[in-house]
């Protein structure tokens, strides 16, 4: 118990906010995905902080954060494949220009 629970939660909140900024403010689709990864990391910090401080005897917290890890990997794999596929046909990864459905 190095630091109180709230410190970890503040850290998670700050990381989540930064990731949120990255997702909404970046032009490049790959950078948007990096923002998503930051948010998932923030989520994992919170899960593990609650696991350590509230229910350390129960492995549920750790198991869920491993599931988050798996989901993050699947998300990155498919998301980046989508970006590559769009890049092939449209020659761009700028999300402002990827607006086929609008027209």
């Amino acid at each position: 118990m190095v630091a109180p629970l709230s410190w970890y939660l503040f850290l998670g909140a700050a990381l989540f906010g930064i990731g949120f900024f990255g997702v909404l403010a970046r032009r490049n689709a790959v950078a948007v995905l990096m923002g998503v990864e930051l948010m998932l990391n923030a989520v994992n910090i919170n899960i593990l902080a609650f696991w350590r401080f509230v229910r350390p005897d129960d492995p549920t917290g750790q198991i869920f954060s491993i599931f988050v890890l798996a989901v993050a990997a699947a998300e990155a794999a498919v998301g980046l494949a989508l970006i590559i596929s769009i890049y092939r046909t449209r020659r761009t990864v700028n999300i402002d220009e990827i607006d086929l459905l609008k027209h």
Binding site: L69, A73, A74, A77, A81, I84
Partner: peptide, 15 residues
């Protein structure tokens, strides 16, 4: 990219 992709999936499996 395809090699990295297959690697990611199996890495998770190992974990």
């Amino acid at each position: 990219y395809l090699i990295a992709l297959i690697f990611v999936i199996f890495d998770i499996e190992v974990i």
